[in-house]
Simulated assay, not measured.
Amino acid sequence: MGAVSLRNVSKSFGAVDVIKDVSIDIEDGEFCVLIGPSGSGKSTLLRIIAGLEEASNGTIEIGQRDVTDLEPKERDIAMVFQSYALYPQMTVRENMSFALRLAKRPKEEIKKKIDDVAHMLDLEKLLDRLPKELSGGQRQRVAMGRAIVRNPSVFLFDEPLSNLDAKLRSQVRGEIRDLHQKWNTTSVYVTHDQVEAMTMGQKIVVLRDGRVEQAGTPLELYDLPNSVFVASFIGSPAINLFKAKVSEDARTLLLDNSQKVLPIPGNYPDARGRDVIIGVRPEYLEIVSEDTADALPATVHAVETTGSDTTVICDSPVGQILAASKSRSLLNAGTKIGLKIAEGKALIFDGQTEQRLKPASS
């Protein structure tokens, strides 16, 4: 059993509080991603789970066993580092078997495990090479293989793909996902890349300044972010955010720096007269003619396409707005258009607290 539970975990370095009263439950077999900007505490939290950092307060359980005061080797975890952390003087086979040899496992068992994992990771032809003779992607596979042969209760990944180029990153990301489906071992994965988080995580924990901002499935965080911070951190292209004021009858929005009025997207009677922030994902903006009712007037600034996806960058009375679609666009810079929000797809956040407002049931 590899369930991981953190209860009121805090960590201070001198007078600096890095982790602040964090509580997280990760189910047995779950793939959990810790994400946040630099300095949010995600790598420190992972190192606390591993036992490489001591928590200032709180408890850590792995498999319903209190491991708060245990050494890393006693926690039944295996960690894959950003820097690979391979022994340069050892061959691939020796690197992968090191922990098993240290544990004095039988030679036959070690050989079988190494051969099985090498076959799984396509490392069979590389077993006698030194790390310096490998590419970055191959080194990362060796690091993963070294973790897998130990058959731990929990895998810990500390930004393992950040040193790889875009193509390799996508490939190894798929390999990690496939391995998790095969082994179904609890995994905790640290990244600052929200694409990695969305495509790999069964649960995502968003950290901000050492605290949990929100935890949930990828689509929960994407569709129903608790705050402006989560909304803006999850999603690519980034969510559009602009200020507005709710009318006294709670039926319309007066856009900031504009006389434009739009219908309020939902039933928000408690928001009467309140300053708010509107959030709209780029794919929920339809490009229409400039004189369309209830559409935001805009001017095309630029069109970006990757072949499969198109993003139209627009200048509007509330700032720059992005509209995204799978269709290719024939629009040119300077074209006057309207932007219409898909029904029920706008999010409303309180202008002061930046927390999402929930509509009243109809």
Rank of each mutant, 00 (worst) to 15 (best):
S162T: 11
E175T: 07
T199P: 00
F155T: 12
I148A: 12
S153F: 01
P218F: 15
H180T: 09
M200P: 01
G201F: 07
A166W: 05
R169Q: 06
E213S: 14
S227N: 03
R141Y: 03
V212C: 08
L168K: 09
A238Q: 14
V205E: 03
E159W: 03
H180S: 06
R141V: 15
A231H: 10
R169K: 14
P131V: 01
I234E: 11
E133M: 15
L161H: 01
D223A: 13
L168I: 14
K245D: 00
Q194F: 03
N163V: 07
V195Y: 04
V195N: 00
E159K: 02
A215F: 02
T185W: 00
P225I: 10
Q194M: 04
L161T: 11
F233I: 02
A244Q: 05
E248Q: 13
K203I: 02
R211L: 06
R173Y: 03
L134Q: 08
R139T: 07
R251L: 07
R141E: 06
I176Q: 01
L134R: 07
Q214M: 14
I148G: 13
S247Y: 02
R150P: 10
L179F: 13
R208M: 09
R211W: 01
R208L: 10
I176A: 03
R139D: 05
L156E: 08
T217W: 06
T185K: 11
V206S: 10
G137D: 01
S162M: 02
S187Y: 05
G235K: 03
S135P: 00
G210D: 06
R141Q: 11
I148P: 09
Q140Y: 03
D193T: 09
R139G: 05
N226P: 00
F242T: 10
R173V: 01
E213I: 06
F229R: 14
V188A: 02
G174S: 06
F233Y: 10
P160N: 00
K182M: 12
V142R: 12
A244W: 04
D193I: 01
A143P: 11
K203N: 08
S187E: 10
V230C: 15
G145F: 11
K245M: 09
E159L: 12
E213Q: 12
A244L: 06
R141A: 15
R169T: 12
R169W: 05
H180N: 07
G216R: 09
D165M: 04
E196I: 05
V212W: 09
N226S: 15
E133N: 10
M200D: 05
Y189C: 04
D193P: 09
D165H: 06
A250Q: 01
S135D: 04
F233M: 11
F229T: 07
R150G: 13
A197I: 02
R173M: 03
S227M: 07
T199N: 11
R169Y: 06
R251T: 08
Q140E: 06
F155C: 11
V230Y: 08
I204Q: 09
G145R: 13
R146W: 09
V172P: 00
I239P: 02
L207Y: 08
Q138S: 08
A238L: 02
Q140A: 11
L134V: 12
V195R: 12
L221K: 00
K167A: 15
E133A: 13
R211Q: 15
D223S: 13
L224H: 13
Q194Y: 05
N163E: 01
T199S: 15
S247P: 02
L134N: 04
E159Q: 15
I204L: 13
